[in-house]
C-alpha cells in the first residue's frame, strides 16, 4: 500500500489544471506598493466575461493579482529568524492622507501678540550667569539661582521706610504677589484663547461671613451640580427638596411706549450701519476691472491707428490735395485782390 501525496490530496494527475501558473500576463502592468502590500490593476474589466459569471471573474482576477503580489514579494531578499522566513518590507510609496486634522497653532498670549505687533525679538539669554559676589556661575532660574531670596542675609532699611517693618516679610509678600499676578495673567491668556467673555462667576461666591441664607443657597447649588442635576443624590432624613429657579424670560411690554421701542430699533439699525464695511472691496475691484478694460480698448485702438499705413498715406494724400486747393484758392483770391486794387 503506497499512498501518494496526490492521492491524499485527492488530485490524481490533475495538478497542472488545479494549480494555476504563477506567471500572470496582463496587457497593462500592475503597479505595486510593496510597503503597503498594495496592487493597483489599471486594466479595464472585460465586461462580457464579467457578465457571464460575476463571481468567477472576480475570483480569477483577484487570484491573478494576488499572485502578482506574491511574485513581487519573493523578489525581496528573505532572512531566516528564529526558524521563520522573514521579509523586510520596503518603505511604502503611497501617500495616505492623515487621519486627524492638522493641529491648530497655539493661540498667542497677550505678550506674544504685543511682541509680534512690535516686531520684537526675544533677547538671547544664557542659562548660566556669573555671580560677582560668590565668584561662581549660577543658573538664571530655578534651584540655587542667582539673586535668590533665600541667600539674602541682610536688607538695608530704606530711609523713607518705617524701621519697624520686617523687610524680609515684605520681600516674601512681594514675591507672592508677583506669582499671583503671573498666575492671573496665565489664566487670562487661557480665557482669551477660548474667547470667554467674562470670568465664570458662580451665583454663590465664597465670603468671609457666610449667612444662613447664603449657605442654603450654596448647598442647593452644590446639590444641583451633578450630571443628573441632583436627581439621584442621597437625601438626608429631613432634607427639603432644593429648588433652584431659573431666570424667567422677560419681554418688553406689548403696548407700552411705542416711541421707546422705535428708539431701540433705531439704535440697532445704527449698529447695523456701523458694522457695514465702509470700503466695499468687491465694488472697488469691479470698478478697477472696468477701468482696466476701458484702458485696454483705448490702447488697442491707438495701436491700430498707428499701424494702419494706408490711412496715414490717405491722410497725406488728402493733405497734399488740400494744400493744392488752397494754393489755387489763394491765387484766385490774389487775382481778385489785384482786380479790386
Amino acid at each position: 500500500m503506497t499512498t501518494r501525496v496526490e492521492d491524499i490530496l485527492g488530485l490524481n494527475g490533475e495538478t497542472e489544471e488545479v494549480f494555476k501558473t504563477i506567471n500572470v500576463e496582463k496587457p497593462l502592468d500592475c503597479e505595486f506598493d510593496i510597503g503597503e502590500l498594495l496592487v493597483v490593476d489599471p486594466n479595464a474589466i472585460e465586461e462580457y466575461k464579467f457578465k457571464q459569471n460575476e463571481t468567477d471573474y472576480v475570483d480569477n482576477l483577484s487570484r491573478d493579482n494576488v499572485q502578482l503580489l506574491i511574485n513581487e514579494l519573493f523578489k525581496i531578499p528573505t532572512e531566516v529568524k528564529e526558524d521563520t522566513v522573514v521579509f523586510q518590507l520596503p518603505k511604502p510609496v503611497t501617500r495616505i492622507p492623515r487621519e486627524k486634522p492638522c493641529p491648530k497653532p497655539k493661540p498667542l498670549t497677550k505678550w506674544e501678540e504685543y511682541r509680534k505687533k512690535k516686531g520684537l525679538r526675544p533677547a538671547k539669554k544664557e542659562k548660566l550667569v556669573w555671580d560677582e559676589a560668590s565668584k561662581e556661575w549660577k543658573p538664571r532660574y530655578g534651584m540655587k539661582r542667582i539673586n535668590s531670596e533665600k541667600e539674602v542675609w541682610a536688607i538695608p532699611v530704606p530711609e523713607t521706610a518705617d524701621p519697624m517693618v520686617d523687610q524680609f516679610k515684605l520681600m516674601r509678600e512681594k514675591k507672592k504677589e508677583r506669582i499671583a499676578k503671573n498666575e492671573f495673567q496665565r489664566l487670562r491668556n487661557i480665557q482669551r484663547a477660548h474667547k470667554i467673555d467674562k470670568f465664570a462667576v458662580s451665583s454663590v461666591m465664597p465670603t468671609d461671613k457666610p449667612t444662613p441664607e447664603l449657605m442654603s443657597k450654596a448647598a442647593a447649588v452644590a446639590k444641583g451640580s451633578t450630571a443628573s442635576l441632583g436627581k439621584f443624590d442621597r437625601k438626608l432624613a429631613l432634607e427639603k427638596e432644593a429648588k433652584i429657579k431659573g431666570k424667567k424670560r422677560k419681554f418688553v411690554d406689548n403696548i407700552g411706549s411705542i416711541s421707546t421701542e422705535k428708539e431701540r430699533t433705531m439704535k440697532i439699525l445704527d449698529e447695523l450701519n456701523h458694522s457695514r464695511p465702509k470700503l466695499n472691496y468687491a465694488r472697488v475691484v469691479e470698478k478697477q476691472m472696468k477701468k482696466d478694460v476701458k484702458e485696454e480698448i483705448r490702447q488697442k485702438k491707438e495701436k491700430k491707428r498707428g499701424t494702419r499705413s494706408s490711412k496715414k498715406l490717405g491722410n497725406k494724400k488728402a493733405a497734399i490735395k488740400m494744400a493744392k486747393l488752397n494754393r489755387i484758392k489763394g491765387k484766385a483770391k490774389g487775382a481778385k485782390g489785384k482786380k479790386r486794387r
Binding site: F251, V252, N254, R264, T265, I268
Partner: peptide
C-alpha cells in the same frame, strides 16, 4: 404676541 427682543430685531 410680543415685541421682538434685541437679538430678534437684529436678525
Amino acid at each position: 404676541m410680543r415685541p421682538l427682543t434685541d437679538d430678534e430685531t437684529k436678525a
